[in-house]
Simulated assay, not measured.
Amino acid sequence: MTVIDQYLTKSRAIIDTVAAQTTAIELGARWFADTILAGRMVHVFGSGHSRIMVEEMWPRYGSFPGFNPIVELSLTFHNLVVGANGQRQAMFLENVPGLAARILRNFDLSQQDTALIISSSGCNVVPIEMAELFQQQGIRVVALITRDHAAQSTSKRADGKKLTDFADLVLDTGAPVGDAMVHVPGLDTPVAPGSTVGGALLVNCLKAEVARLLTEAGHPPTVLSAGVVVGAERAVSLFESAYDEHAHRLARLYERVGLPSSVGGG
């Protein structure tokens, strides 16, 4: 089997793993749809390369408002690799206790909200604390992890708790321990990770099911769509409408945040 065949074969197995989670995906999507129908937002967070799944959810073609992508550049900006804003700093910061609380201090949360927290290992401090804080606010948490990898990984948190300890529902990317899936002859370390494949499948299954539920409830989502599909004029209208709806939903997260002021109840 060639290395390409290896990756494709293991990716097909990941599809089967995701398919086996249909009931769980439907449950998570129901929670998310209820949040969106209530005029609130689904908070989506991931540090490191889990940011990929956050942006896969929203905003991009085929997605719609109702999701609050929480992306901290200090935890996810990998382009420079070394030097200022390098990868070493990002990997350090995602294990700093208390950072999650400072991030969520910016939002006025509600028990009508829900959260999707992505972390392949489920062992880094910031995503774990993020899930814990959401649960303390009475917010349901869906964790997207790589189950086998998380089971064999050691939590960076002092008490040893992992993301799954603060999740109401757990979804599995189906990737192997260590994530990399291909073994090259003569190379003693595997290459080509698989969690992105499984994560993207899960995120888009959730997205599709949420869209179905919203539509059946009489509130079809405003989907970012390509001009070649819906025509240039309607594409512009959909984008503008979707962005405006996102702004209106986001405004509710800021309206009464924190301390009282002359313009907000706090």
Rank of each mutant, 00 (worst) to 15 (best):
T146W: 02
G178C: 01
A101H: 08
A175L: 05
D168F: 02
D188T: 00
R102W: 06
A192D: 01
T189I: 00
L169M: 05
L201R: 03
G83C: 02
N85V: 15
V142N: 07
M181I: 11
A151W: 12
A167W: 02
Q111F: 09
L93I: 10
P190W: 00
L109P: 03
V191E: 00
G86Q: 12
L93R: 07
A143H: 06
E72W: 06
A150Y: 08
Y61A: 06
H149M: 10
S74P: 11
N85L: 15
Q136I: 13
W58L: 06
G66A: 03
G98F: 01
V81Y: 09
H183K: 13
A101F: 04
V126S: 01
G66D: 09
T189V: 04
G178V: 08
G160V: 08
A100T: 01
F92H: 11
G160C: 04
D148Y: 11
K156C: 09
I117D: 02
T76N: 09
F92D: 11
G86D: 07
E132C: 12
N68L: 14
A200Y: 03
F107V: 02
G194Q: 01
F166G: 01
T164E: 11
V96S: 01
L187I: 09
L169P: 05
I139N: 04
Q87Y: 14
H149P: 08
I117E: 02
H149G: 04
M181D: 02
D159R: 04
T164V: 08
E94K: 01
T173N: 02
V170L: 02
S119F: 13
L163H: 12
G178H: 02
R157W: 01
A143P: 07
M130N: 09
P185D: 03
K162N: 06
D108K: 06
A167K: 01
D172E: 04
E56S: 08
V142E: 09
P59M: 04
R147F: 13
V126K: 07
L133M: 14
F77I: 12
N85G: 15
Q135S: 14
T76S: 15
S110A: 07
S195D: 01
L163A: 00
P127I: 11
D159H: 13
M57N: 08
S110E: 07
P185E: 02
R157V: 08
F64R: 13
A200I: 13
D165W: 01
D148T: 15
S74G: 13
